[in-house]
Amino acid sequence: MKLIECPRDAMQGLPEFIPTATKTAYLNQLLQVGFDTLDFGSFVSPKAIPQLRDTAEVLAGLDLSTTRTKLLAIVANLRGAETAASFPEISYLGFPLSVSETFQLRNTNKTIAEALTELAHMQDLCEKNDKTLVTYLSMGFGNPYGDPWGPETVAEFTQNLADMGVRVVALSDTVGVSSPDTIAPLFSQLIPEFPTIEFGAHLHTTPTTWQEKVEAAYLAGCRRFDGAIGGIGGCPMAADQLTGNMPTENMVAFFSSHHVDLGLDLEAFAAAQSYAQSVFN
Rank of each mutant, 00 (worst) to 15 (best):
F95S: 09
D226I: 06
P88F: 10
R223A: 05
L190C: 10
V169T: 01
E114C: 05
S100H: 12
V168R: 10
R79N: 14
L105N: 11
Q211H: 14
A73L: 05
A81R: 06
A170Y: 03
F225C: 13
T205H: 07
T174C: 14
F255L: 15
G41T: 01
F194C: 14
G61I: 09
V260G: 06
T67C: 08
T22M: 14
P151W: 09
A84L: 10
L27P: 00
M237Q: 14
G244S: 07
L266T: 10
I191S: 06
S188K: 14
S257W: 02
G234R: 07
A81C: 13
P151L: 10
E249D: 07
I183V: 15
A113S: 14
R106F: 10
E118Y: 06
L97E: 10
G234H: 00
L62D: 03
M139Y: 04
Y275A: 13
W210A: 15
V279C: 04
V99R: 06
V214M: 15
T55D: 04
V177I: 12
L3S: 02
Q12I: 05
L14H: 08
F255T: 12
L133N: 00
L78A: 12
E267L: 03
T153F: 12
L97W: 04
A85R: 07
F43W: 07
A272T: 06
Q241P: 00
N77M: 13
A228S: 14
G234E: 06
L52Q: 08
A115P: 01
S256Y: 05
A73P: 02
